[in-house]
Nucleic acid binder design. Structure first.
Lengths: 330, 330
DNA sequence: CTGTTAGCGCCTTCAT
DNA sequence: ATGAAGGCGCTAACAG
């Protein structure tokens, strides 16, 4: 920048003014500066800019799990879009590993002085973010709230979705509806509540042997569990898979055993409509999750001090076939 | 950091030494400094660090298209992993839009003084990266080379993959193999070459009416084209879909028309093995694409001045059923 | 209007 | 082994 100033024969401050707002500079001078900028191929150094007192950088951080999961990828894409339009870059922290890994990643990002964090939190404790380590960086949690800290959250109506899915099956006469649960996710817990709620509203008892807590959230785990489930003397007539990966496993197991059990999945997925029996799901606008999170965070980065928001997006049922199979006796 | 120094009653330089290598500091002093750091919750400011003379930041940029496409998501995840292990953050530039948008995004990223760029390039011209605007930032292209610039590239063996796919179909007696092409992608062009090559090697003529250039690379476009194809008086007996999205469209069209045409897709996709007829694909290790790109870029960021590398990853055929259907007369 | 100066937080000499 | 000083590129504040 000093080079530009020399080249244009003006002072440093003038160049700065031109590069930014440009207000209060004679047009003649300004154009000379612009020419110099052009010739030298000058580009403002965002790093130095972020160093300026008080201000933070113009980048946001997004911390999430496996990008390979379309759910996360959709959030990332949407958040990126909104942030980009506001002139913010997004630096990604991927955390497949332990909760400890997540914390390290977050610290890293804070060290980079990002203007804010969007976090799809692990089960771990996030209290540290409220302390000095958090450095006062605004945080928005996505898809689920975090322990130990009050902050904005954007989620989907998991309980409502779980209820709708279950009701849909109950309404068709199913009485033995199994629910497959990925381990200890907040969201999954809420979906289970919805499941119980639907049963309660229908005045029906839940058969606890049909509430299956999986050891892991993988497709294979669901496949195995489903196979076992269907080999019981009194198998369920319908299955509610609480997660997109689980849904895949369920379908695969059912396909192999040639079972006619009804299936409803939580969260839509690509190709759901192209499987042998198109899959009924409870879906929400995942992109909106990411967009809203980004918008909220940008507000905070801009200094908003509103009380923490808690935004809940609706879920809707998309009937495609697998969820409309009647129970055998009906 | 100055606070830490005061608190510990030492000089600034000492604190710096402790925070970094820590060599040449008496243990007693060091522990006092560490204590102060702990108490103050001090964290090194990466931004200021990046400002230091000569050095660049410790972040890499990754510029790619739609993260929602599992292909890109896989690259991103893998690159993130490698970069993260090396202590680098990754800032994402998503570019769904025009080539102009890509250029803007890249400039943005360079302004942020990233240590290097991984780019999955659009068809546009990338000559500017070699000029002053490129600021000498190292660049690695992923999945396809760019116009107008010599740089590292990591790709898959598109031509080989196209050949294998086609040969697989020809070997089963198919003679009328259609190929569906997404518009003007470099990779797709290479795959077509492979297709032609397979025909040539088999001493068979290509029926040019079976080489279909789609107006866009979407699933819907492929679906429409396939339907038209199968309604011709002399339809193909097999289809080679040059892209994962196209494969989906082909399958959907074939499913509806109840056709028994064989299908081979390029690039594997989730659920490919769970469709009514499991899908045969030519696949490569997409993750390795991202990992290699990151590794290459880290080397460059580290000052490597080797001549530009050009790494080509192999493709293999995964037979699952759809590609093994024989032609009707056989 | 425009030039100059201080200082952001860190690291790297250079002295001590 | 440690403290002090200079500079990275920029902007805000202050003079002229």
């Amino acid at each position: 920048m000093v080079d530009v100033a020399k080249r244009a024969g003006v002072g440093l401050g003038t160049v700065s003014r031109v590069v930014n707002g440009g207000s209060g500079v004679r047009e003649q001078t300004a154009s000379r500066v612009r020419a110099a900028i052009e010739e030298l191929g000058f580009q403002r150094n965002e790093v130095a800019r972020a160093l300026r007192p008080g201000k933070t950088s113009t980048s946001l951080a997004l911390v999430l799990g496996d990008l390979t999961n379309p759910f996360y990828a959709t959030i990332a894409k949407a958040a990126l879009e909104v942030a980009g339009q506001a002139g913010y870059a997004v630096v990604l922290g991927s955390v497949d590993e332990d909760p400890e890994g997540e914390r390290r990643a977050i610290q890293e990002l804070i060290g980079r002085r990002v203007a804010g964090l969007m976090i799809v939190p692990d089960q771990g404790d996030h209290t540290f973010l409220a302390g000095p380590a958090g450095a006062g960086v605004p945080v928005v949690f996505v898809d689920r709230p975090a322990h130990g800290i009050e902050a904005d959250v954007v989620m989907v109506d998991n309980e409502g979705g779980g209820r709708i899915a279950t009701e849909h099956l109950l309404n068709q006469g199913h009485r033995r509806v199994a629910i497959l649960l990925a381990p200890s996710y907040y969201t999954v817990g809420r979906r289970l509540r919805g499941y119980r709620r639907a049963y309660r509203l229908a005045d029906l008892p839940v058969d606890e042997s049909l509430v299956i807590s999986l050891p892991e959230g993988s497709r294979d785990a669901a496949e195995k569990a489903t196979r076992e489930l269907m080999h019981r003397p009194d198998p369920p007539t319908a299955i509610f898979a609480s997660t997109n990966f689980l849904t895949e496993g369920v379908l695969r197991a059912l396909g192999e055993t040639n079972s006619q059990a009804a299936v409803v999945g939580f969260d839509d997925f690509r190709l759901a409509d192209m499987l042998p029996t198109p899959v009924t799901v409870v879906a929400s606008d995942i992109g909106e999750l990411g967009r809203t999170a980004a918008r909220l965070l940008l507000e905070r980065a801009d200094g908003s001090a509103k009380p923490p928001q808690r935004i809940v997006l609706p879920c809707t049922l998309i009937p495609r076939g697998s969820g409309e199979r009647p129970p055998p006796t009906a």
